[in-house]
Write a protein that binds this DNA or RNA. Structure first.
Lengths: 265, 265
DNA sequence: GATTGTGAAAGTATTCACAGCT
DNA sequence: AGCTGTGAATACTTTCACAATC
């Protein structure tokens, strides 16, 4: 789903479904939390609850990785953390460059979840000469002119684009020409890339529009039920309750060229 | 997919698939660009290319909305813009609050794609008293104490959580208690919400992990083919080429409780 | 007795391919 | 002749439900 690549014809078991891959990071986060609390084992039921999925799905997902559980007991937390990390490729160091150091780029540079997952911000790059040398999150910003050199010297294969939409395609081309083969795009554009390069996009605007769609539905249903809906006052229930049945990851680059998030269109 | 709501048993045509809903914003963006260039009509082929999907999928998607095209001709751009906007609920005003005004919150507040899509930042809210009154993107930051009042006074039904993970659940509960029924969560936590409340999440960390997974695969394939892979120097092709087969939207909250994006875990 | 791992069933989504309209 | 709209075919995902195992 996420790319132009078809992922191996799979002679044998090597065919983890995309939907499963997209959930592995969720499981990993939940497991990491358990690990920090020194919990030795979890059942599929408990872990599923912590990750916000149902247990059958979780077991099926894990079954693609191998048989890492013990019947009647559950899963060993540390062991699973290791196996999932390995499967995701997080046991190695991934140098990442962030291009575009506006508010969003700065937010990403400051993101703490990086280092703990094997990602390292190798460089921050911005087109504004005034930013050059200024440290953001302890990392000095470098000028776009240095892009190719940085990518090659650091062996960067993952690039993050947090520029305005107008600059994104050009930045993308330079990244790819320099050797980057995976791109996370926050700019609201569909990027064209050569075969073999993966692109994922994050788009705030799209998320909000999807929420608006469902919000509208709710209002319609209430109205149809004969209720007057006074804007936001229609909610009555207690603030906390069951876990939402399914919080989808705003992550899947399902279709092509999603609307990215944080810059002016 | 994105929520705990099941979307209407659908007596008649009223059952637009989630996958289609998630793509409507893409089409809308592409159509808006065409509209700005005063292009009167598009074929499914052209529009699909601009949105980064294939044309059969696009036609199928549109078929759920109705028959808005003309055989032998294509689709009227303005008319489609209107129909999709209406379907997504963008013809009305959606006041939104952003809770947590760090780099990410500021980036969101500055996002230009808001107003043009019917979204209006009704308030910025932060727990830090030092921020209170300071304008961000022209909007004065208000203290968390005001949250309930703001939501009720402005009739806010959509809330954006851009706080650190530790604060997210509590903020969520207060938003929901005050009347918010849709939440876009950027904090890396699974939120528990009552039935009837939609949650979508955006998570940078998850996106990077999925890219790492595929990146690892590529490296493995090259290695298997007997090639030595010198870090990032393995790319040879031209920088631009065909559009990536499918850039999935990092948007779908597909599974439950995805990992959000931009704060320290 | 508890809990995994997994075939088989059910539900969704995508793609094909062409009849039908302009 | 060109292009949409859509049934039918295919592919993927989730859920069920239970035999296998500890």
């Amino acid at each position: 789903m996420a790319t132009g690549r078809t992922h191996r014809p799979a002679t044998r078991s090597r065919g983890i479904p995309e939907a499963t891959v997209a959930r592995l990071p969720l499981y990993l986060r939940a497991l990491t939390a358990l690990s920090e609390r020194s919990v030795p084992t979890v059942s599929s039921e408990e872990l599923a609850a912590a990750a916000g999925v149902n247990s059958a799905k979780l077991r099926k997902d894990f079954s693609y990785l191998g048989s890492y559980g013990t019947r009647g007991v559950g899963y060993d937390v540390e062991y699973l953390v290791y196996q999932i990390s390995r499967e995701l490729g997080l046991t190695q160091d991934w140098p990442v460059v962030i291009v575009g150091v506006g508010n969003l780029g700065a937010a990403l540079a400051n993101y703490g979840g990086f280092a703990s997952r094997g990602f390292r911000v190798a460089a921050l790059i911005d087109a504004d000469p005034a930013m050059a040398g200024k440290p953001v999150a302890g990392i000095p910003v470098q000028h776009t002119d240095e892009l190719e050199k940085i990518v090659q010297d650091e062996g960067v294969s993952i690039g993050v684009i947090a520029t305005p939409a107008g600059a994104a395609q050009q930045v993308c081309e330079r990244l790819v020409a320099a050797g980057v083969t995976s791109i996370l795009n926050f700019a609201p554009t569909v990027l064209s890339v050569p075969d073999g390069v993966d692109v994922r996009k994050v788009d705030l605007s799209i998320e909000l529009q999807i929420l608006a769609f469902h919000e509208q539905r709710k209002a319609g249903e209430l109205a149809a039920a004969g209720t007057v809906v006074p804007a936001a006052a229609s909610h009555q229930g207690p603030a906390v309750a069951r876990r939402a049945a399914d919080q989808e990851p705003v992550t899947d680059q399902g279709p092509d060229g999603d609307v990215p998030a944080v810059m002016p269109t």
